[in-house]
Design a protein around this nucleic acid. Structure first.
Lengths: 231, 231
DNA sequence: TAGATTGTTAATCGATTAACAATC
DNA sequence: TAGATTGTTAATCGATTAACAATC
């Protein structure tokens, strides 16, 4: 099977999330493409295509078995085959992620955390020991870890990423708001939450509606020094 | 101007982020669509179209003035017109977001935090006082706040969202991993980080490459009870 | 059977890319 | 001037939606 496009993966996750809530509430074991399409605002044809793409067969006049759909999605993503990961950076964000119980559903198992703050080293966060950053590379090598979660300050993220790659990491889930350079075979998934913030800002800005002001400003020359990083 | 599509907004933010780093490093005040396109893997024609869509004019044989580009993007999103927001939930994630200095660049100003833990009430997190949840509604009304950031546990998120809406909130930046029901005129932006996790999982799962196993499993009937929420 | 639903092919729609005249 | 870049129109590409026969 050729790789699924990101847009398909995203819909699969939406189905999976919804079906989790759905089966938890209703006592039904099948669902039709129309039902799913209606709640998620996705065309029923699209739902059937997505299901077909992961090898699911529906039943005429009945729909799809919720249980089979969930199993197929878990297989596609490998959620039933837990993959160990290390957390780098044990600040507030690292803590929040470590404490979040829901990730196990997605196959994630955080097996160690690393931080360079001596006060944190040796402490436990939801059962995971925080170790010094020096232990990171040997730990990853010893346990053959492929995934790292990065929540370090921007200033050190690239250096850490280099060390992760040289230790054998194949995927980095990056919460540090900076672009990382890594070899082609290493996957970087950036969580740039500023994008979400920007979309909220755009909406709120639209409520103000002063287009003339915007055009007037644009017409003026841009003479003040304006490095956006300084704003 | 008709509203910009989300896909355009996303590219605008990528330009904005890059130009921030770019101007911080290089001492150049113009950039061409090809330069931007190359680093961000976006077609130069697309860059010119996006810039045209927000009223920017380039200069033949020169490119675009970085300063003007940034100003235009800030105008589109309203980044220069700061909007106050309240944070609901002051746990690890709320703390992490409150401590993040970068949001000011995007016009966000968190003016208060609310939590129902008496131990947290009265404390200050990066200059913001944590108040009891009862103070929330009057505070929002009094100050005419339009935006809320939600980091509460799933169990209470809908209730809180209802109260936020009745207090006059027009946009919710939701970090609680649940779907919220709100009136049509209220914008919800969900930060479902599980999507990012799923994409990493898909990549790692692809490295294993055991398609035959997947098909073999799919061929079997799905007889074990399998509510995905229990996994 | 009649009717609801699937699976698939065809049509539409929108977004991206190519081509190229206009500009400096 | 020659050449590089913009702005815009046309062509391509891919994703979504519509149509409909097959199925139970």
């Amino acid at each position: 099977m050729e790789p699924l496009r990101p847009v398909v993966l995203e819909r699969l996750i939406r189905y999976y999330r919804y079906l989790g809530e759905f089966t938890a509430r209703k006592n039904v074991d099948t669902i039709t493409s129309s039902q799913l399409g209606t709640v998620l605002h996705i065309d029923p044809t699209q739902v059937r295509k997505d299901f077909g793409a992961i090898g699911l067969m529906g039943i005429s006049r009945v729909g799809y078995e919720v249980c089979e759909v969930c199993r197929a999605i878990r297989l596609v993503f490998g959620f039933d085959h837990p993959y160990p990961a290390v957390m780098v950076g044990a600040g507030n964000l690292g803590n929040a992620l470590l404490s979040y119980p829901g990730f196990a559903r997605y196959g994630l198992r955080i097996v160690a955390a690393f931080d360079n703050d001596p006060k944190k080293v040796g402490t436990f966060i939801t059962g995971v020991e925080v170790q010094g950053i020096r232990s990171m590379k040997p730990f990853i090598r010893k346990h053959g870890i492929q995934m790292a979660i990065l929540t370090t300050p921007v200033a050190v993220s690239q250096t850490i990423a280099d060390r992760l790659v040289s230790a054998g990491i194949k995927a980095i889930w990056n919460f540090s708001p900076t672009r990382l350079s890594v070899p082609e075979d290493v996957l970087i998934r950036n969580e740039h939450i500023s994008l979400g913030l920007a979309q909220v800002a755009y909406h709120l800005n639209g409520l103000r509606e002063d287009e003339p002001r915007r055009l007037a400003i644009l017409a003026q020359p841009c003479d003040e020094p304006c490095n956006p990083m300084e704003k």
